[in-house]
């Protein structure tokens, strides 16, 4: 278990750093997929194989492909100098991010979480279904959130179409 944890943590964090630091945008996308895979592995370790499945399907599959499409549409030849891929504010950005990481890690580590042990969450698909719909012993609020999520997805789909649609006058350009 410990070995698996270390490997997964290294995979996730190093791939995350890769996303930020790689000079080529496509490499960034691929590093991102790797990082997502690491998180999926964590989900398996945390007794949530269903979520891990979702993660792989949606993030590693759909989102990565979408991002690659976006890169394909928007990339123009550009210098790959390390300085050029970063903002001018990279030093204060690094300091701020470091501060944030230290702060979060510190707070989460010193917090007394009480009697904790793994394996408390729902494992089976049926349990997830019941949880999401607020059925049985689970709180009702999830039913509402579930519907809200559905509406958001619908709106986002429409919005994406509206925003990215070429207008007629633009065609003439």
């Amino acid at each position: 278990m410990t070995v698996a944890f270390v490997v997964l943590a290294a995979l996730t964090l190093l791939a995350g750093l890769g996303v930020v630091l790689s000079r080529h945008v496509v490499h960034s996308a691929l590093f991102m997929a790797a990082s997502f895979l690491g998180v999926a592995g964590f989900f398996v370790m945390l007794n949530a194989p269903v979520l891990a499945g979702f993660q792989v399907l949606i993030y590693v599959g759909a989102v990565t492909v979408l991002v690659l499409f976006a890169i394909m549409f928007t990339q123009r030849p550009q210098a790959r100098s390390f300085r050029l891929i970063l903002q001018r504010q990279h030093v204060p950005g690094l300091l701020a991010a470091l501060g944030l990481g230290v702060f979060l890690a510190y707070v989460l580590a010193i917090q007394d979480w009480g009697e904790v042990s793994p394996g408390q969450g729902p494992r089976a698909v049926e349990d997830f279904g019941a949880l999401l719909l607020g059925a049985g012993e689970y709180p009702d609020v999830f039913a509402l959130l579930f519907q809200l999520g559905a509406v958001i997805l619908l709106i986002a789909t429409i919005a994406a179409i509206v925003i990215s649609r070429r207008r007629r006058e633009e065609d003439e350009l």
């Binding site: 204060p92 300091l95 501060g99």
Partner: peptide, 20 residues
């Protein structure tokens, strides 16, 4: 102690940020 450190970091980053 940590707060002092943070303030230093923040001030530094603001200074740099402003200069930009």
């Amino acid at each position: 102690l940590a707060a002092g450190l943070l303030v230093l970091i923040i001030l530094g980053s603001i200074a740099v940020g402003v200069r930009l």
